[in-house]
Write a protein that binds this DNA or RNA. Structure first.
Lengths: 234, 234
DNA sequence: GAGTGGTCTAGACCACGTT
DNA sequence: ACGTGGTCTAGACCACTCA
């Protein structure tokens, strides 16, 4: 573990935990350097990386501040469905369909396995907009990485927001495809048979390992995924 | 323009232009520092950014090398359809359907406009795998940014690869959705009516402005989009 | 073992924006 | 005007890895 990584992790933790809320003024580089007993160059490197990651904003003379929480939007947004629905001026609600604890099976073994087949918490739920089905969520949570999920209440709170609050910084891999609705989906989402659905599968990791796998099924005509990126260093 | 940005641009140009092809050994940091007459720290910063962008790979003791051209794959790959088809062990072919030069219309005005409505080159074409339709491409090229497109031969070469060879480093924005096939698509792509299609719209820019807009329509069951990303600095 | 990249330091100067 | 971040330097030490 290098010096600037330690400092980076420390400051990230402060921001993610809320100890330094959005808008909070971050100590000046000189002070941080003194506090961590490193040179200013090292602190500057850390702050540069935080700024590039969008966690903080920096202004000459003004200082550095914790950004408003749009941290993940830069690349491929991890949708908060509740926000999404509310931004359409519709009432959001959530409904749990099932929850089971079981051993990892099938593909989950390859995704989650760190040797022995671990336990997963499998949740299916429905997100609704104005009382109408909006999106079907099927989710497996790796209990080896997130044991606290057992004590979470997924009746009133969806697994996505709960995980976001628990597991702050992650790596994700997405698969996106269009599929015709099958029987289950057409029933749950109130679709006509074979209607086009947008299926987004996402696996996420943190530093301890695989966190969760989730499949979100949207009626295709009601949803668009957007992604910005810049390939080069620009 | 700062020192390390100049050096970054210089080395990027060498890589993108092919002067330093994939696999090429990049001069050592000490030599680069001497060549540009800067300190090694400055060169190191540049090389670090190039490595993070995926343009080069670095090995201790081994030196630094230009990466194989997967530069854009890190986030959301800009598919080279020919490669994609060949990776399925199918024969790839390409077919131009139409090409017209006209003024920008509709949404293109907002996308491309830098004041007056400029000219666009509008191309529709079909990508085929083993003689069967694989993907429908509809593309508008901003002639204000890419005037050379007028002289390109889009009969034998698809616009995508041609643009990639002309406009190296770009920013892109994607919209992805699932839609039922309409008449035109179901005819051109050989689909059953209302079959689920994956539609990817992409707009790209370079430093001079908007380059192109493209809509790719894939039969949903034949295509998956994948995207990796890491939200934080990790 | 030798040479590379990775990291860090203790200074320095400057542009710029807030005051 | 002042103080901040942005940048750059000329050193240094270390770990890793290839020969």
């Amino acid at each position: 573990m290098t010096l600037h990584r330690k400092i980076l992790a420390d400051i990230e933790e402060k921001i993610v935990s809320g100890a330094w809320p959005p808008g909070h003024r971050i100590p000046f580089e000189v002070d941080l350097a003194a506090h961590y007993d490193v040179s200013r160059m090292t602190v500057n490197k850390v702050m540069g990386q935080l700024a590039q990651a969008g966690l903080i904003e920096r202004r000459k003379k003004g200082g550095s501040f914790v950004s408003q929480p749009k941290a993940q939007s830069a690349v491929l947004e991890i949708h908060d469905i509740a926000d999404e629905v509310r931004s359409l001026n519709l009432e959001y609600s959530y409904q749990q369909l099932s929850i089971t604890r079981r051993k990892a099976i099938g593909e989950e073994l390859a995704w989650f396995a760190n040797g022995s087949p671990g336990d997963v918490l499998f949740v299916t739920c429905l997100h609704l907009a104005a009382g109408q089905p909006f999106c079907l969520e099927e989710r497996a949570i790796n209990l080896a990485t997130v044991p606290a999920a057992l004590e979470a209440d997924f009746i009133s709170l969806a697994p996505g927001p709960w995980l976001s609050s628990q597991i702050p910084w992650i790596t994700a891999q997405h698969r996106i495809q269009a599929v015709p609705a099958d029987r289950k989906e057409h029933k749950l989402l109130n679709l006509t048979p074979k209607q086009a659905c947008l299926v987004i599968e996402r696996r996420t990791w943190n530093t301890s390992g695989a966190v969760t796998w989730v499949r979100m099924t949207y009626p295709g005509n009601r949803h668009v995924v957007t992604a910005d990126f810049r390939p080069a260093s620009a």
